[in-house]
Amino acid sequence: MILLSFILRKFHYWLFGISVVAVSCHESPYMQGKRLYEYHCQSCHMEDGQGLSRMIPSLATSSLLGKPEFCCVIILGKKDTIKNNVSYLAQEMPAFQSFTTTELTNLVNYMQHRWQSDFAETSIREMEEMVSFCKQKTSEQPAIPEN
């Protein structure tokens, strides 16, 4: 009885503690990446990153996630059909050239954190290297303007 009254009296502390644990368990550490994903990627690649059949590729199961080629597609877009190891795709992927290196880093880290179990965080310096690698390819493949 005494214990119960003690728990009830300190109830707001308990509630606060539970909330902190709940928030820390569910919130992604990459909040900017999450917001960028929701605004720019989610309408096609879906909330769960699974895409749509053969038409919009799955990001959640992509073997390229986090690799330089993956970042290049974000920056340069894809106008031609994309080989997906299964079939071809017809939807255009717009180029997101306006993303800063920090935004790209947060976006890619958000996706990797969410969908890769053996995730290793990409640093801004690593992303800068990937961006310069991609920009070398710009001359080879013209980018699609962002809608």
């Binding site: 309408s43 096609c44 879906m46 749509l52 038409m55 919009i56 255009e92 809608n147």
Partner: peptide, 15 residues
């Protein structure tokens, strides 16, 4: 087919 907004979501539900 070129809809950049809600169509992929709706098509997924149709699927």
């Amino acid at each position: 087919t070129s809809c950049p907004s809600i169509c992929p979501k709706v098509t997924r539900e149709m699927l």
